[in-house]
Amino acid sequence: MTAPARSNRNVLRRVVGFLGEYPLIVAGLLLFFVFAAIQPHFITGSNVVNILIQASVLLIAGTGATFIVMTGGIDLSVGALMFLGAAILSSTLFGVLPPLVALLLVPIVTMIFGSLNGLAVAYAGVPAMIVTLASLQVFRGIGGHVTEQRSFIIPDGLRVAGEGNWLGIPAPIVIAAIVVILGAYVLRRTRLGRFVQAVGSSRSAAANAGLPVGWVLVAVYAIGGLLAGVAMVVQLGRLGAVQPTLDSGFELTVITAVVLGGTSLDGGRGGVIGTALGALILTIVENGLVLTGASPYIFDIVRGVVLLAALLTSGAPRRLLSWIKRDREEVLDTPLNGPSLH
């Protein structure tokens, strides 16, 4: 191979490598252009703000779920936990508290409930799917009991996280951005994040290396619970009302965003940024469908097709990458005289 050919190939490898890590960027851009071509309003600044606001709840809850899925777990109770948070916030018990205190307490309460999931998964040895399926019922039941299955209007004082504007940016966007950035940072750059990846990659390897596996599992479900509470505070702020069926089925949307973002359900591989892209794509689809005036009857079809297409195209850069890398085999296995690390 000649020298320029190799350097061209390296540039290609780097670009494709980046897209290989975040393949959804391609799918997202494609989708964006399609909608923009159909409906010019789609690309206005205010609609982009709209999309970000609408994605905020999913971004926050999805960040928490990413931690859980990264350990090879799953949380089916996230929607129920959010409803529970809303129920608690609307209860008379909380009515006497100053709004800010009440808002800060909700995530703490949901974090405690979330860590109960973690305790069961880590120490009772029950599969996460079963634990959270059971807690889904319990959480929704408690929430229903607290609200007596009635709807509630949320007083304006409790709606800052949904309606506020901080430095000219809508509060949901600010909160979601902070959560996503912080989540990505914790997962990539901290000891806890490293342990999460290690436990998800191989639980027995992590145990053999003396990592506190049980503690890590409790921690991720606690994070999931905390962020479910934060997501709820934002959602309630936006909605201004609680209804008994609030967020039922939301767990599937959350898991869809996580998986679409490239996090493996087996754990170990993936990340928060991928989930964020997944959440944005799901929101863009919903937003685009309404904006382009599509018939409600075809919404589900389009949703499904877009999901499938996103997943299919997301595999393409990886395949391209492995095609570029296919010459590596011979080089890898030269144990003695191979290139050593610098």
């Binding site: 000891r191 490293r194 990846q197 290690a198 990659s201 191989s202 027995s204 390897a205 992590a206 053999n208 290396a209 003396g210 990592l211 493996s264 170990g268 591989r269």
Partner: peptide, 28 residues
Amino acid sequence: AFVTEDRRDEGIFLERPIRETLTVVSLD
């Protein structure tokens, strides 16, 4: 220190960069 028999499942993180396997026990 214990280098286990099953190096693929119990020793190395197959899906993670080797950097992470190398430093995981001495991360503190």
